[in-house]
Simulated scan of single mutants.
Amino acid sequence: MKKLSAILMACAMAVSMLTGCGSSNESQDNTKETEPVEVNVTALKGPTAMGMVSLMDDVDNGKVDSENYKFTIAASIDEVTPAISQGETDIAAVPANVASVLYNKLEGGVQVLAVNTLGVLYIVENGDTVQSAADLKGKTIYASGKGATPEYALNYILQQNGLDPAADVTIEWKSEHSECVAALAQDPSGIAMLPQPFVTTAQMKNPDLRVALDLTEEWDKVQEDAQEPGALLTGVVVVRTEFAKENPEAVSDFLERYKASVDFVNENVDEAAQLVGQYDIVTAEVAQTAIPECNIVCITGDEMQEKLSGYLSVLNDQNPEAVGGKLPDDDFYYTGE
């Protein structure tokens, strides 16, 4: 009997050891690090790209090995939207309303990760004729961003000040902001709508150029009595929905690193300006003056949804096509869940 008990105990110990080995192997498998994935990121020349320069520099200097990042800086939104639609870029900085247009066009194919730029649009002129939005009546305005935030923001402010954008002003649309700067240089009485940092670029070429109107302030004025006032937003960061579902860790990694990059740029203007010049976004001299005026942010979560949904509602009321025909559903706003 004692011999049988000893045999049974030995068998139990053997089973226990085998089970322990199995658990150990499973634990090792479960803690195995995921392989880095390719993350293609596209930013537009201007504040959206400026906010990413610290992250781009870290990648180029081999300080990032969590994911394999590849950055592209585009001069025009026309280069960005096809890249998203065709899956050639995974994460992209786009005008706020374009994010909604893409969401509707791609049937939920993109989600917004963060608001990255607040209002940066200004009316500038060589003279001293524009003191209010109403003073733009009869003027010719050089502008870039047709079909995106600049056009809809300008139209909304003009309309709220009693002007018909199609009849009371002449808007000469350029494909890039730099073309507006060039047009101003050739027109002594010229007026333009420009974002930072292009305002600074233009003023460096022509010190007499005056900031006549801050469109963020003009927007706030006409929104004062609104039931749910919306802020003027310039840009957001979007991710392809399919990429986000397949690579949540990569999205989380990007957001963490992008926020750190934005903080670095805002807190270390001199160093950031050198990086902006290094990446040929604008010159370091321009960036040093412009960065504090660019309203570069990284707003995520509930605050992102509150600000962006309010802004898109204003555009939708003005022209549903500005947001792609209808307001996006709640799944447009990335939650990480």
Rank of each mutant, 00 (worst) to 15 (best):
residue 78 D to G: 08
residue 55 L to A: 15
residue 95 P to H: 09
residue 298 C to P: 10
residue 193 M to Y: 03
residue 173 W to S: 10
residue 163 L to G: 10
residue 41 V to M: 09
residue 290 A to C: 07
residue 312 L to F: 03
residue 188 P to Y: 08
residue 46 G to Y: 02
residue 135 D to A: 14
residue 322 A to Q: 10
residue 264 F to I: 00
residue 278 Q to V: 10
residue 249 E to D: 07
residue 110 V to T: 14
residue 222 V to K: 03
residue 75 A to Q: 12
residue 137 K to V: 04
residue 142 Y to L: 11
residue 298 C to R: 12
residue 313 S to D: 12
residue 133 A to Q: 12
residue 19 T to Q: 08
residue 289 T to Y: 03
residue 183 A to G: 08
residue 51 G to K: 02
residue 112 V to G: 02
residue 23 S to N: 09
residue 115 V to I: 14
residue 176 E to Q: 09
residue 175 S to G: 09
residue 317 D to I: 02
residue 138 G to P: 04
residue 65 D to F: 10
residue 144 S to E: 04
residue 142 Y to E: 06
residue 130 V to I: 11
residue 130 V to R: 10
residue 319 N to F: 04
residue 90 D to F: 00
residue 67 E to Y: 03
residue 92 A to V: 04
residue 314 V to A: 14
residue 35 E to P: 01
residue 306 E to T: 05
residue 2 K to N: 15
residue 187 D to N: 13
residue 321 E to N: 11
residue 267 E to A: 15
residue 277 G to R: 14
residue 253 D to A: 03
residue 254 F to M: 02
residue 149 T to H: 06
residue 121 L to Y: 13
residue 45 K to M: 15
residue 6 A to W: 13
residue 309 S to G: 10
residue 191 I to R: 11
residue 155 N to T: 07
residue 254 F to P: 14
residue 222 V to D: 09
residue 261 S to W: 08
residue 99 A to R: 02
residue 210 R to L: 02
residue 192 A to G: 08
residue 219 W to A: 02
residue 324 G to K: 07
residue 238 V to T: 03
residue 198 F to E: 02
residue 149 T to A: 15
residue 17 M to H: 08
residue 270 D to V: 15
residue 54 S to T: 00
residue 185 A to P: 00
residue 211 V to Y: 00
residue 157 I to E: 02
